[in-house]
Design a protein around this nucleic acid. Structure first.
Lengths: 296, 296
DNA sequence: AGGTGGCTTTGCATGAATGCACAGCTTGCG
DNA sequence: CGCAAGCTGTGCATTCATGCAAAGCCACCT
């Protein structure tokens, strides 16, 4: 009766010796004592009743049977790697923390309701929602997921385009009542500065030569400033349409629209809880963006 | 960072639980305590950060992630089985005993020289050479290998046809000198009885109506009887040609030839030492059979 | 020729994995 | 309803795998 391999883990040790060429080298790779490796290989050879290695003064060399074994064990290793990659962490009992970064308007008004629903589904995943800048955060792992406005993301990031963010001109009712029949260019404009280049560029194309008298580096502030009646502002419809105290004053051309991306780093995309957040938010945000009348 | 599986042997335990449906059932299959299985599975789930089994009152059931794991681990198990099958025992340091059965003439005169060379190559394999009957021995595992004369072997046996056993008529020099110019049918014939139907049938076709006056159930005896000058006998050339005290008296038709098979049981053909014997004897016997002048 | 660095192999002590015994739960049967 | 059988889960004692330390070998360098 053929011997049966009783401890599959001996194959992992075999692999290390085959690759390192010595017991000592394999021990370093495995993080165990070289005498342990010695005994594991001896046990494996006894179990299989075959000499897998030639004992040389400067190390261990594979025998022909050992080379045949190596081929088989490498396919086993592929299976283990597949297991580690595809199964690890795949569990609704997920826990841990996920950090999401978005510009403030998305962080304040778009994400919270969706995150509330996400937490209902995954009560053990903690969410850290950061209002702030973009590229560096993901590259330096200071955040896990970024909700990014723009066009094409950097190549080091992976993710998906969840939809389009459409814009329109909004103003407070009081302000609008106080400025009837006024040309758009003659209005007081609330604009952005400090890091919102795509939006400021589009505004300059829309109203050339018009310098916004009211400016902020915070999109949320521009929304609140508009609500306060300080002027008109180009605001994302998905947010402004839901504010009863903002009136849609004028449309903006389709070229004003920006893509909305949900991004993470290449190394994190297989992390279960990161995937859970991405998988939940992508369709939710896409639906939210499409529910805007211009979204059709 | 994804966890890495540190002990591949946990997968073997996982497989047992997946198939048994319970810790207790897996423990029985593995020959370990159920508490060991419990801890191994708990450790595996912690390492992979995934729930592989639902805990039910009557046992463990696979989760979706567990089912995905099962598919992967079964491919790993296939690798281990391949390893056990193809590598185990493939070593000149083979040991153990092999029992070979053959009819007496083959056991006495054909096999021993080849077995001597085999033992030179595999000094730690013991050979048990049994003179005796055929089919039952292999089926009942009373022998490992049978050297069989005949045509098609039973379907439960596997093996290979190593060549043809050709026959011719032989007699002792003294007998031949004492019977010059005698018709074949008029000679005293030495024949077989008791279990050598293929040969007795062929002899009856060759010399119809001739009843051998000298009979034995032992082919070896017929050779010795012929050497003793009791008459003529139809003997295998591979044996008789090497006896200087036997003279080839007449040829026999090609239809007299019989196939020689080297057979073992389906379950044994992967046993390393069985394979070693088969791999050695098949070409050796084939060459021996072909070195007979009629073998060309 | 001697020293050094790398390696393998082994005896003994230590700690982790395992078995044992037990408790508790659920289901099925009388 | 009570009991038996099967199961899971856990604390503690035992066993065995592992690490440590040492011995010995070989090749290379000075």
């Amino acid at each position: 009766m053929n011997a049966q391999l009783a401890n599959w883990d001996d194959l992992r040790v075999f692999l290390a010796v085959a690759r390192a060429g010595s017991l000592s080298g394999a021990a370093r790779r495995l993080g165990v004592n070289h005498s342990t490796v010695f005994r594991r290989i001896a046990g494996l050879e006894e179990t299989l009743d075959v000499r897998l290695f030639e004992r040389l003064p400067n190390g261990y060399a594979l025998t022909p049977a050992g080379e045949e074994t190596l081929g088989i064990v490498e396919s086993i290793e592929d299976g283990v790697a597949t297991l580690n990659r595809t199964v690890t962490g795949k569990d609704l009992r997920l826990s841990g923390s996920v950090r999401i970064t978005a510009v403030d308007m998305l962080a304040f008004w778009l994400l919270p309701d969706h995150l509330a629903r996400f937490r209902a589904a995954y009560p053990r995943i903690e969410i850290s929602l950061a209002v702030g800048n973009e590229t560096l955060d993901l590259s330096r792992r200071e955040t896990d997921i970024a909700l990014r406005i723009g066009n094409t993301p950097p190549e080091t990031l992976v993710g998906r385009r969840v939809g389009q963010l459409r814009f329109a001109v909004y103003g407070a009712p009081d302000y609008c009542a106080a400025h009837p029949d006024t040309e758009l260019a003659a209005h007081t404009w609330i604009g952005l500065d400090g890091g919102h280049a795509p939006l400021t560029r589009r505004f300059a194309q829309f109203l050339p030569g018009v310098r916004p008298a009211i400016r902020s580096n915070s999109v949320a502030c521009t929304v609140r400033l508009a609500k306060a009646g300080l002027g008109l502002a180009a605001l994302p419809c998905a947010i402004a349409e839901r504010k009863p105290d903002l009136i849609r004053v004028a449309d903006l051309p389709d070229s004003f629209a920006l893509d909305l991306w949900l991004l993470t780093h290449e190394d994190l995309r297989h992390t279960a809880r990161i995937r859970a957040v991405l998988d939940f938010l992508a369709p939710a945000l896409g639906t939210a963006l499409m529910s805007d009348p211009d979204g059709v």
